[in-house]
């Protein structure tokens, strides 16, 4: 007993053992870049050693040089701007319709009975299968491309909005009743914030499919946009440009995803999963 006691005192008096060395987030961030950077270096080395024919896959440095050239003559930003404008317009239109219908169906069983079956039927159509029809309807100008993006964006946002609204805790709705909240306040203070995590999941999903729709839509009869750049380069076998456009699509995809994450961090800062501070 005495021995135990003195042991404990000794332990308390001794400096606390250092916590096991953990990697800081900054170090982990660097580590996460090792694989992609290493891959680029190997690719570059293989291309320079003549192991990959430049027509098949040009070296990263050659792609970068092409990119720089297109930036210098201003055409890259012009095409990029055209693509982004289409994506944004389609996202806003499709997103608004999806959210609006989602709110309606989420709240009203009548609206669900009226609308949900039709929406689910349209959703069952792979939107790429609509492409020929879209060309017939809209021709080959902007509206057809925006329509494609809108169509793709609408469903994930619709479904997740309905789901989010339906999943709001009934106990909180009961609270709204005992505190005498008006229905407008109940929607604003309880239902919409409660549905927000699900809605934002829909937004992230929608951003991904918006891109997919845009890539497809831009490969048909365009004169502007990243897709045009790729199609044009294919005609002239400019592999440099094709690879560049693929990389640009990838970069924009990553950008869109981090935009969605930033939105989640901002709107869901109350949520333990998204909270920054402990």
């Amino acid at each position: 007993m005495t021995i135990q006691l003195s042991d404990r005192t000794a332990l308390a008096a001794a400096p606390r053992p250092r916590r096991k060395a953990r990697l800081t987030s900054w170090q982990l961030n660097i580590i996460s870049w090792l694989a992609p950077v290493g891959f680029l270096l190997i690719w570059e080395a293989a291309a320079r050693a003549g192991m990959i024919a430049p027509q098949i896959l040009p070296a990263p440095s050659a792609v970068a040089a092409t990119g720089w050239k297109l930036i210098a003559n201003g055409s890259l930003f012009q095409h990029l701007g055209a693509s982004l404008a289409r994506a944004a317009a389609g996202f806003v239109i499709g997103g608004s319709i999806g959210f609006g219908l989602g709110v309606l169906v989420g709240f009203s069983r009548l609206a669900e009975a009226l609308l949900d079956r039709s929406i689910q039927m349209i959703r069952a159509i792979p939107f790429l299968a609509m492409l020929p029809l879209v060309i017939v309807w809209f021709g080959v100008d902007e509206s057809g491309k925006i329509f494609m993006v809108s169509l793709a964006v609408m469903f994930p946002i619709y479904i997740n909005t309905v789901l989010g609204i339906r999943q709001v805790d009934p106990k909180l709705l009961e609270l709204a009743r005992v505190t005498g909240l008006s229905w407008q306040a109940t929607i604003r203070r309880i239902i919409l914030p409660g549905a927000m995590p699900s809605v934002l999941t829909g937004v992230r999903y929608a951003l991904a499919v918006a891109w997919l729709a845009l890539v497809i839509a831009e490969t048909i009869a365009t004169t502007r946009g990243i897709g045009f750049l790729a199609m044009d380069a294919r005609e002239f076998l400019q592999t440099n440009v094709i690879v560049l456009t693929i990389l640009i699509y990838a970069a924009i995809g990553v950008g869109a995803d981090s935009l969605a994450r930033a939105l989640e961090r901002r709107l869901l800062r109350w949520h333990p999963n998204y909270a920054k501070e402990a």
Partner: peptide
């Protein structure tokens, strides 16, 4: 006041 606090986590 209920058995659960029923606080709105987002407020």
């Amino acid at each position: 006041v209920f058995q659960e606090h029923r606080l709105l986590p987002w407020a």
